[in-house]
Design a protein around this nucleic acid. Structure first.
Lengths: 166, 166
DNA sequence: TAACAAAAATAGGCGAGGCTAACAATGTCC
DNA sequence: GGACATTGTTAGCCTCGCCTATTTTTGTTA
């Protein structure tokens, strides 16, 4: 995808996010954010500098090159798509959705990503973000009770209508 | 999850799968399957032996201990769940679904896995594997045309019924 | 401005998971 | 049973991403 290791992508994403919220990014911030020690950051950053994705002057702040920014932005975007999916469809809480999204983001193929986007868009179109069947699924997850559409598709048109109201 | 690196999990899964189809597993088979050289396999396997997950006598065949077998089975099962999801819900072709599943399997949290299982079960219950909305989604993915349920939920009960027939 | 605190960089080490080249064991076939 | 091909192992090296200990630079403050 990006020719970078998963870990380097993590560093790039972290820089991007920190830049948004803090304006300047220091080695120390990154270390804290990624839960590693400063020398580790220095090492990885030096690789990203060589790849032309990151700028930093000696003992100075860290920033993304335009190339690095574009890449980081797309990675973060992928992560956001995944998080939305996990939150909205799978009803994971924000933290767990984020964890899954962050870890998985490196590995999904472009088509898979595209399908995720489509799926979320589909939800929007077909039920303003939450079509009926999704409510049924959430109910199923929480209670284990089979969804009402079960009955619908087995019995009468009358009941189908009832289900739709559900 | 398993306290093992993602890569070690790959080796374990590969042994499990090869064992199913070939009965005996050799270093060479694993090397081919994982696209690495024999010495690499020997190195990783030696770690798995120390962890008590794999058995092998000197210059002999490789097999899973009962512990290794149990672990590998659960990993492969997770992978299968993901593949089903990608194939059935996202309409990815078999190969791409497998690729995503294999790469992602290491990273999903237990709750996320559970939701995947629930989701697939939900599809089974609510439409014998393929409820109407899923057909609509597939159509949406292929053509970009908005799903009919869009119209349904905006207009009249009569049309709702029409949608259900769709 | 000199001293000290904070942050970044360097030096050097470690384990995982790759590799090649060389060597050892095993199996097969005349 | 000896020769040779196949396969597994060992040795030794590399990169990545992590670490601790130490040094260098920068910033602050008396």
């Amino acid at each position: 995808m990006s020719n970078l290791s998963a870990r380097s992508e993590d560093y790039l994403k972290a820089i991007f996010k920190l830049q948004e919220e803090k304006k300047v990014v220091r080695v120390k911030d990154l270390a804290q954010c990624l839960d590693v020690r400063s020398p580790t950051v220095v090492g990885v950053i030096s690789g990203l500098k060589e790849s032309g994705l990151v700028d930093q002057e000696h003992y100075g702040y860290i920033s993304l090159t335009s190339e690095g920014d574009a890449l980081a932005r797309s990675l973060v975007q992928n992560e956001d798509i995944l998080r939305s999916f996990f939150e909205e469809v799978f009803s994971l809480d924000s933290e767990e959705a984020g964890l899954n999204a962050c870890n998985i983001e490196h590995y999904i193929t472009p088509t898979c990503r595209e399908r995720l986007v489509s799926f979320i868009k589909f939800l929007e179109i077909c039920g303003r973000g939450s079509p009926k069947w999704l409510g049924h699924f959430r109910h199923f997850v929480l209670t284990g009770e089979p969804p009402p559409c079960d009955r619908c598709s087995e019995i009468l048109p009358v009941d189908e209508k009832a289900c739709e109201k559900d």
